[in-house]
Design a binder for these strands. Structure first.
Lengths: 216, 216
DNA sequence: TACGAATTTCAACATCTGTTGAAATCAAAA
DNA sequence: TTTTGATTTCAACAGATGTTGAAATTCGTA
């Protein structure tokens, strides 16, 4: 247990509270009270509340994008076009591994992302700014894997994929009740085993060669 | 344009604002100011803020559950076990039809549901209370359609499905930017055409006869 | 019209909110 | 030690928030 600077304490507490209660549901005074620092320090280090939130988003996005980009490179180095499953796995693997095995604070970060990705006001813009360049790389790889895919289908498939991931990281415990305790929303290992084949099958159904599979 | 009672005006404005800005991001004074009524009326008609929100959720959930249950009955009356696609369609069809063609205020309601379904604090409980009985009926039908399905896989598939729907109703405009204007997050007709085959393929990949398809 | 209930208005409460300016403290370099 | 810049503390602001009790008004009905 190393000791943290005041700035680091704010970051740690803010990340957790924003993930649990959302942007509007978290006050600077809760954050600074729990971190044991003065409220005015938020202004000094981050400008204001929005600045703090943006900085939290930005910080980890950079490292994450590099890591996921490398994962895609590794897949494509072996074979390009790569199988759909491998591309999907490269995108998802990194996220879920961080949550399962690494630094547990990543869980809060993904919880924050879940809140942002579902925010109708500024969530779409924020997600696009931080992650769309990376997503485009993955869609390029998927396009090469399924050359006859309709463009719009590719984007909508990613949209469904993103939604499934987002609800997972929201960790709402709903599946615990629905399944009568059989499943647990925090069991990211279980998600990891099932998300890749589920999403890959969805992509193939809509983007694979054999004609138009849309419904109705 | 019929004239609404004060209670109805509160309901109409609250539904829209809660959908756009979430529970914590919406104040009673915004709601009542925009509705042109006194703040104290919220207390009189709904008890308090949470009471208003709960009532908004409850109101439409009842009608919706009946309608979707009937849609499932209609499918099962034709053939049971029914094809996966038809079961999935019965669940999704009702929602998307309401948004596309009927009373546009349903859009706000689904926007609210999106916020609730992603809320880590009390969202899971609220969704379970209102919708899990109906969801269990659909999962029963899917279990009969895929008798060898692992129980946990069924629940996780529904989880992915729910996430895809939720992000759709959040309507964040992210896909507009990502696709360079090719797709629009409010184009629920496009979602309707693609969600059913996408989700059905995912279910089949994880729950269909031929052994274990989980990843890794 | 008169009565009783339902509805609406008014004014205020205690508390919390994000933000701020200026003083105080600290740490390191000259 | 003195100086300089970074960091932290303090006190306060103006306004918003959910909630409330009681008075005033409206409405349906006897």
């Amino acid at each position: 247990m190393k000791k943290l600077s005041n700035k680091e304490r704010i970051v740690a507490v803010a990340e957790r509270l924003f993930a649990e209660r959302g942007y509007d549901g978290t006050s600077l005074r809760e954050i600074t009270r729990e971190a044991g620092v003065d409220v005015a320090l938020v202004r000094y280090h981050f400008g204001n509340k929005q600045g703090l939130f943006d900085e939290l988003l930005r910080r980890r996005a950079e490292a994450l994008n590099l890591e996921r980009s490398d994962a895609l490179d590794a897949v494509l180095a072996r074979n390009d076009p790569a199988p759909v499953e491998e591309i999907v796995d490269a995108f998802t693997h990194t996220l879920l591994n961080k949550v399962v095995s690494e630094d547990p604070t990543w869980r809060s970060y993904f919880g924050m992302l879940a809140q942002v990705n579902n925010n109708p006001e500024w969530g779409g813009k924020a997600m696009s700014r931080h992650f769309d360049p990376l997503v485009r790389r993955f869609l390029d790889a998927l396009r090469r894997a399924m050359p006859d895919a309709d463009e719009t289908n590719l984007f909508w498939c990613y949209h469904f994929w993103s939604g499934a991931l987002t609800l997972t990281f929201a960790d709402t415990k709903r599946i615990d009740a629905l399944s009568g305790g059989l499943c647990h929303s925090s069991d990211f290992e279980a998600v990891h085993q099932r998300l890749v084949p589920f999403i890959s099958a969805g992509f193939r159904a809509l983007c694979q060669p054999q004609g138009d599979n849309t419904h109705d």
